[in-house]
Design a protein around this nucleic acid. Sequence first.
DNA 1: CACATCTATTTCAAGCATAAAATTTCTTAC
DNA 2: GTAAGAAATTTTATGCTTGAAATAGATGTG
Lengths: 157, 157
Amino acid sequence: MIPDTRPSAEPLSKQRLRLWLRFLKAQSSIEAEIRRRLRDQYGSTLPRFDVMSALARFPDGLKMSEISGLLKVSNGNVTGIVDRLTQDGLALRVAVPGDRRAQLVRLTPAGQTAFAELAQAHEAWLDEMLGGLGPNELEALGALLDGVFDHLGEGGN
Amino acid sequence: MIPDTRPSAEPLSKQRLRLWLRFLKAQSSIEAEIRRRLRDQYGSTLPRFDVMSALARFPDGLKMSEISGLLKVSNGNVTGIVDRLTQDGLALRVAVPGDRRAQLVRLTPAGQTAFAELAQAHEAWLDEMLGGLGPNELEALGALLDGVFDHLGEGGN
DNA sequence: CACATCTATTTCAAGCATAAAATTTCTTAC
DNA sequence: GTAAGAAATTTTATGCTTGAAATAGATGTG
């Protein structure tokens, strides 16, 4: 097929803007549905899930600043979320031997159980909501996202 | 090229999950940069920009509930944002003749000027950040997003 | 050891977001 | 016209998020 190289009536910047708006709409409608289900079915939230997810990947515990670094959110933000997880008995803070400033946060056994259940539901929800994407579409979308990242200069992390 | 039709080692649900995480990462790093620039360069925010954008498209004004409907956010949310825009002299509430419950929100002239400037910067930023996407990529990405929407049953609006 | 500096975390003030309750006003059915 | 219900909006309580300031502890240099 011969690519259409005619200058479009609409400038490229407008096309990029419109694509961004569609991108945002897809993202936020999916995310809103996930938040709703976390709330209604599990009495939880996406920020809590994100923190638990990080903690689940590091059974030896994470320092507060490591959590905020992984999730790319502020320190003060993590303080509040971990406070609430701790109140609910899902996480706990343990002292770091050599450093009285820092603490390691870990999932409690109850937290591990709760997270396993949430993670399974989360994966199933996404599988359902992204069901329109088969293997080829997934690969194509992944490649396009790589293009975005390359240009943003954020390949790593 | 012969498509690889072998059953992948990784189940499709996991692939969808991983794609979603990359999708989220792209979206949130771009959005974070936009929020940062709105704040640092214009002393504004994305929610304010979204509301002003809706108001700019309807010069005759919008009722509070119309704004929240367009932006798909709660009523109480809009109350606060419009309050702050009004305090800053960018929007105003005018009475609706036949209905003392409702009010029309409009941009002030200052609000129109401010929005025009923000909108131009916003488009330029996206053009820069999505610069990795040429016409063909834009079209391909648009088509893939359509596939997602179709499956979500959210074609319209 | 003292002092400056750096690091880890929490606290604070402001704004954003929601769902649920409350208020005010309109409409409709009698 | 009055009472019941619906509609438009605000208020409230709670949680998430940020950047900046505060606190406490560690580290390094003289």
